[in-house]
Amino acid sequence: MSNYMINHLRELESEAIFVMREVAAQFETPVLLFSGGKDSILMTHLAKKAFYPARIPFPLVHIDTGHNFPETIEFRDNLVKELGVNLIVGSVQEAIDKGRAKEETGVNASRNSLQIVSLLDTLEEHKIDAAMGGARRDEEKARAKERFFSHRDEFGQWDPKNQRPELWNLFNSKKHNGEHFRVFPISNWTEMDVWEYIKLENIALPSLYFSHKRECVVRDGVILAKSEFITLKENEEVVEKVVRYRTCGDMPITGAVCSEADTLEKIIEEIATTRTTERGTRADDKRGETAMEDRKKAGYF
């Protein structure tokens, strides 16, 4: 009987590193999609480990809605400097200015689905053949069906009914001209795995993941940060709350949770007892039962 065994975090780490190395070897112009959230920060950490002592052999791509938390951008710029990687920014504002995308109107307007246009434009402009993302299968039911190597047609579309089977650790990266792949190295991680690994490896995160005081607006049960991007409805008021974020998307759609957890230990404890999913705070997923599947088919992350 052998005792050669690694724990679940090291097994997930090893799997993600294997996938990233396959991407670097099998594609010509891969990139890592970087949102500024904890999952993409984790991805840069894994990429650094995968290729050390060489630099990460692909650039980061940030699709910038212009509605970011200021902490995110500051963190991004420091990280890029520290890792010595290139950063490509695809701007949603630019797409709107050029008439490629149309801003939503109304009080719940968001630039979430406009990101699809900028993302596909950026991929095309830089002739990117593989875009790695930090999506996880435990996040959302459509994502539970994702492959590690997910094929996209020449229009960037996902065809969930016709996905390539994925067996053992053999990833098929073959494609025709103009098509590309989305690759998800941390598919098998859960929210808890991510936090436990962040603690294990002592990975730095933006301050908004930890408990802090913030001026907020509560809308349809979602706690939104007060910012220049949000228009108050008539009977809404700004209240100060002690909150933290479980995910980090655009300011107008990312909900905070009331929390006193200001250390990684406390966050892990909080997640262990929480009864809602992390995307439960995302207004973009509440637009219908298959909101995520519909956006993904069109080319969303």
Partner: peptide, 17 residues
């Protein structure tokens, strides 16, 4: 998880839990 699966009430693809 997929629309077509929910419509037909069957599992078609591999889902990971």
């Amino acid at each position: 998880g997929l629309k077509s699966e929910r419509e037909q009430g069957i599992t078609i693809d591999v889902a990971y839990r």
